[in-house]
Design a protein around this nucleic acid. Structure first.
Ligand SMILES: [Mn+2]
Ligand SMILES: [Mn+2]
Ligand SMILES: [Mn+2]
Ligand SMILES: [Mn+2]
Lengths: 222, 222
DNA sequence: TTTGGTTTTTAGCTCAGGCTAAAAATTTTA
DNA sequence: TAAAATTTTTAGCCTGAGCTAAAAACCAAA
């Protein structure tokens, strides 16, 4: 039984919630797939019927092993297409999500593995999120913490974002913060929790706490 | 008003029929979009309502200028994706049609123009069909005739196919006939109308009349 | 010009995937 | 623990895009 695009979106949404808070409630799902809770109930019943999801009334949904498999493949497809759009078609990183949201539903294993090879097996997507490999294994990003956890004197490299909305990504562009850049945290202002970062002792960047909470970093030694 | 994938397929089908025989009858459309004539009637009414098609009961359908525009853009998208799949992902030319049939419905002008630039503005798709440019202009292939029209002694280059079914394309693969190859027609056998082609006096290729009718060539001077 | 065949349209149905409003279940608060 | 608030489900409806079977229109022959 082939999944529709809509069904695939539901599986991916359940997966995201499971990886995050742990529970895919009716309402959180509704928010993610942009439908009403009533529609979610309806779809969950069908996905349960078909063996992709486990679900009992009022209890929320979890993925079966095959459901999880589908979801991981979708995440892989989504992130590989994002890499393609940014690396090859030179889209900005804030503009690729919605296109990938459509492209992820096309074709099967064959297409995505060819795309993966063409892109030379990238490990991360343009937002720093890890790309599952062909076997569905997601290599976990090591030691990533929110930039808001850093203390004065820490050196770090920006490696991801928590919020990948267009609005936030374009804000980072304005601060010229991008993945891979190395900074030192030189000050934390008590007044508003904002931070001052410096990029190898040159320009200073002032970063609000709201921003720091949504930037993922890896601390670097020394 | 945004077109659905299904509606886009109808516009493309009408366009193909207009370019070919000239008339998009209810039945020929049904065959192209793989639906029943009843469903076609239904859809044509909606497309007429929305201004993409002109159509009166029992008279067949024609595209309005905006409908034709959409159709040409779709053909452009389809053929560019086919180029991508063959050139970059190394698919065989007989395997790309159905994927392109889905990819063509994704995104808009922006995506397709970026893809076009990435592919360096190809003029033809993997089956030798011309790719309309961003303004919707289709450059007509010059002097192409069916290989069955050639006479003994003619030199020519293979430049396209009339039948682009998987079955036919794989047959050409077996004969190692591909686009761009140059041959001389050295014999026409009266018994079964089959032809003998030679590639710069080396290997001989025996080509049935059925095949020759579906291969497009350009005669070369001298 | 009447008859018969073909094509198109109409009528009525189905299915996926949505929606709203109301009912039921669950959870929180007093 | 009873009431209130929240969440989920149910019921009933809608739209897009298909389908079949029957009626209507059109075309071609006799
Ligand atoms: Mn999607
Ligand atoms: Mn991403
Ligand atoms: Mn298509
Ligand atoms: Mn083609």
């Amino acid at each position: 039984m082939r999944l529709s695009s809509s069904q695939e979106n539901y599986l991916k949404a359940i997966y995201k919630l499971e990886v995050g808070d742990g529970i895919a409630t009716n309402q959180s799902l509704a928010a993610l797939v942009e439908a009403t809770p009533a529609s979610v109930t309806n779809m969950l019943r069908k996905l349960t019927e078909a063996g992709w999801v486990e679900y009992q009334a009022y209890q929320g949904a979890t993925l079966t092993p095959s459901g999880r498999n589908e979801a991981v493949t979708l995440v892989r497809k989504h992130r590989l297409w994002e890499v393609f759009l940014v690396e090859k078609l030179h889209y900005d990183w804030d503009a690729v999500h919605s296109l990938a949201e459509e492209l992820e539903h096309i074709g099967g294993e064959e297409l995505i593995n060819r795309l993966d090879a063409f892109l030379e097996h990238p490990a991360y997507d343009p937002h720093g999120d890890p790309i599952p490999n062909a076997k569905g294994v997601v290599r976990i990003r090591q030691h990533a913490i929110a930039a808001s956890e850093a203390v004065v004197g820490d050196r770090f490299v920006v490696c991801g974002v928590k919020d990948s909305s267009s609005l936030f990504l374009r804000h980072l562009d304005k601060l010229s913060i991008c993945l891979g850049k190395a900074y030192t945290l030189i000050d934390l202002l008590e007044f508003d929790q904002s931070a001052v970062w410096t990029e190898k002792d040159s320009a200073l960047t002032s970063v609000s706490n709201e921003v720091a909470k949504n930037v993922l970093i890896q601390l670097t030694d020394e």
